[in-house]
Every structure is written in C-alpha cells, then in structure tokens.
Design a protein around this nucleic acid. Sequence first.
DNA 1: CGCATCCATCGACAGTCGTCAATCTCCGGG
DNA 2: CCCGGAGATTGACGACTGTCGATGGATGCG
Lengths: 95, 95
Amino acid sequence: MSTAEADRLAALLKALAEPTRLRLLSLVAAHEGGEACVCDLTEPVGLSQPTVSHHLRILVDAGLLTRDKRGVWAYYRLVPERLAHAARALDPQRP
Amino acid sequence: MSTAEADRLAALLKALAEPTRLRLLSLVAAHEGGEACVCDLTEPVGLSQPTVSHHLRILVDAGLLTRDKRGVWAYYRLVPERLAHAARALDPQRP
DNA sequence: CGCATCCATCGACAGTCGTCAATCTCCGGG
DNA sequence: CCCGGAGATTGACGACTGTCGATGGATGCG
C-alpha cells in the first residue's frame, strides 16, 4: 500500500473511529425515512448541540453523510456506498 | 448500535485510522513468509525504531497482529480474521 | 565473561481532538 | 419588520497521540 493510499484510507477511518460518530451514523440510518435532523440526535447521544453539529460535519466531510437543508432544518442521510468502500478497503478479499 | 458496541468498534478502528499503521500492516502481510521483524520495517516507513515499536504494540493490542519473539528478534504476523471482522462491522450487508 | 544487537519502555514535547458555553446566521410566522 | 428557534461557528480548555532521544533488558557471539 502506498503512502498516498494509506493517507486517504486513514482519513476515512479516522472519521469512523469515534464512538459518538458511529452512533450518529446508526441513528441516522435507523431514523424514520432514513434521515434525521440535529434536534433528533442530541438527546439520544447525550451531548450538546454544537458537539453533535461538529461530529456531523466531520462525517459529511468524509462523505459518509449528506446534508440537506430544508427551511430551518438540516436533514442528514447515510451514504451506504461510502461505508461499503471503507469495508472493501480493509478486506479486499471479499467482493 | 449500542454505546458498548460503538466503543468496541471505535477502539478497533482507532488502531487502523493511522497511515503509518496501515502501511505497517501492509508491509507485514507482504513480507517474505508473512512475517517481519522491527528491523525490516523501520527503513520502509522512515521512522525511528521506538516509534515503529509503538505502532506495532497498538496493532497487537487491537488484535490485528501477533507478536512472536524468537531469540533476539520479534516476528510480527497479520491476523486476517481481525481485519475481516472490522470490515464486516462496517458493512454488515456483505456475507 | 564482556560486548554488540534487537527491541521495549520512559520522559518529553508539539500537535490534534472532543467537548462546552457563547455567539452568529438564517429562515418562517405573527 | 421583528422575533423565536434551528443549527453552524468560534474560542477555550483538558485529554490524548505521534514522534524522538535516551535508557533498560534480554539474547547470542567471541
């Protein structure tokens, strides 16, 4: 594996290597309609709104979530292909 | 996903979310006989011996490498099932 | 036994990260 | 047009992390 490959994969995994962010991904995916806004997420994870926004931003920047602002609310949605990409990068044996 | 699950998976991913450690895993796996000692790894990654030992320890603690001390040398070997486990945890859809 | 070699550990230091309170921005309703 | 609420941004602070030089064990060789 080249250093460039390692850098890119590590950046993606770093976004995933945090318990709160894993829970946020799980919560968004499980939420009604497959999307959730910040106000749906602060209470389940038990953290302040700025902290949740911070984690969501990191997940969006990593391509793991999309952000769709409709009116006052921002709806987040999972990008399953991005997760599958990370999984394949870790274990290329599996199709 | 429960907080306990998130904690455990995050701990595993944290060991993987570092470019040097990804390269070390790749180097060990690609090395002759599927195993490598520290002196085989310091030069390719361009870091000091203590730093390489530090990263290897983290990978062993995460269950991604095994350490086998034979005489003066310590031989490290990949644990493919552990990588596969991480990949499946990220994308449970795959078999 | 004495010494060189391989590796782990320690101490220190700079940089990054997770968190919160405070503030700012933007939108919809009266 | 103003106000209230959703969410993003900022600043600050403690905790953790990657790195190195120096040191400490253990093992094999002469």
